[in-house]
């Protein structure tokens, strides 16, 4: 007698967000990327559809990232001064699915670059690569609120993913995205309630924006509270699949930034001989953190190390092989 295998039934699914726009769609990207759309928990192909594979971005700064570990110099040292060339190298040589441009130089405590300069950088990167772009500010709210409209206008038609909106600072970026038709990153501090509330606040400004939100649940690196971020994502995904529309957005996370802050990724082997060679260790730390978040349903991963990117892409390819029966 045949065994009937019980399968979970889900009421709803994660929404899809399209990043980038081709020439026909009013932009200049060589292709678009669709994220989200899954109707089952991560990679349970036998219980639903996982229509779009997760994508991996590499991070590019608009100034030399002095604080990055020296091991990055052999990969990016020649292009650290040129964001366009840096982005091109990430795509052409290292296989990044998309590029995250961090407009770090706008920070008043660093270079204090003007919004116009930042917009010009974004345009140069757009000219150098064909992949869709994620663009985020410098992290200073006041300055970022001046950047968003200028950058959004300069990239009209490109359907950027622009970040970040937070509960206490979401109006300027949402307005810029509404006016110039970009997508927005809604960031909450490892808090499912604020995550949902922020999505509601953005959707209240424009119902169309409800379908243009990518959630940044905020994550921790392996060893630094990864289980908290993981369980928040799990709740969001379960909520989405049970029909909670205000949690049914794709998710993005900044793995590289978190991992390369840790001592495990950075300490030279001389200081901790038992930990093994530093670069290898950092790459593994970044790849392991990323793959854990894939299991929690992450849709867009932002990494820094090209070797970690290669490992994660291989893991994604394995996870996307159907296990339906």
């Amino acid at each position: 007698m045949a065994v009937e295998i019980q399968k979970e039934k889900y009421r709803s699914k994660v929404g899809e967000v399209v990043l980038g726009a081709t020439r026909e769609q009013g932009g200049t990207r060589s292709h678009t990327i669709t994220v989200g759309g899954e109707s089952a928990l991560p990679y349970l192909h036998f219980e639903g559809e996982i229509p779009n594979r997760p994508v991996v971005a590499l991070e590019v700064w608009d100034m030399v990232p002095e604080e990055w570990n020296d091991c990055f110099k052999q990969y990016y040292g020649d292009v650290f001064n040129d964001p366009a060339a840096w982005a091109k190298k990430c795509v052409d040589e290292y296989g990044a699915d998309l590029i995250l441009v961090r407009l770090k130089s706008a920070d008043p405590d660093l270079k204090g670059s003007s919004p116009e300069n930042c917009a010009a950088t974004v345009q140069k990167v757009l000219g150098a690569v064909g992949v869709p772009l994620v663009v985020i500010g410098c992290g200073n709210n006041e300055k970022d609120n001046l950047l968003y409209p200028v950058v959004a206008e300069a990239a009209t038609g490109e359907n950027l993913l622009l970040g970040v909106a937070e509960q206490q600072n979401y109006k300027a970026i949402t307005s810029a995205c509404m006016a110039y038709k970009h997508n927005v990153i809604a960031q909450s501090p490892i808090d499912i309630n604020i995550c949902k509330q922020l999505n509601i606040l953005i959707a209240e400004m424009s119902t169309a924006m409800a379908n243009r939100i990518v959630i940044d649940p905020t994550i921790a690196a392996l060893g630094y509270g990864i289980e908290y971020s993981y369980s928040i994502m799990e709740r969001a995904r379960n909520g989405a699949l049970q029909g909670d529309k205000m949690l049914a957005m794709p998710m993005i996370c900044n793995v590289g930034q978190e991992v390369w802050k840790t001592k495990e990724a950075n300490l030279p082997v001389a200081e901790e001989p038992g930990w093994g060679e530093q670069e290898e260790r950092g790459v593994m730390w970044e790849a392991m953190t990323a793959t854990a978040y894939l299991q929690a349903g992450m849709n867009v991963l932002i990494l820094r190390h090209p070797r970690a990117l290669a490992l994660v892409k291989q893991n994604i390819a394995d996870l996307m092989k159907s296990n339906s029966y």
Binding site: I192, N193, I194, K196, Q197, I200, G239, D244
Partner: peptide
Amino acid sequence: MDIYCDSYIDV
């Protein structure tokens, strides 16, 4: 049964 947020009644 629902995930809390400040606007839960409207939701």
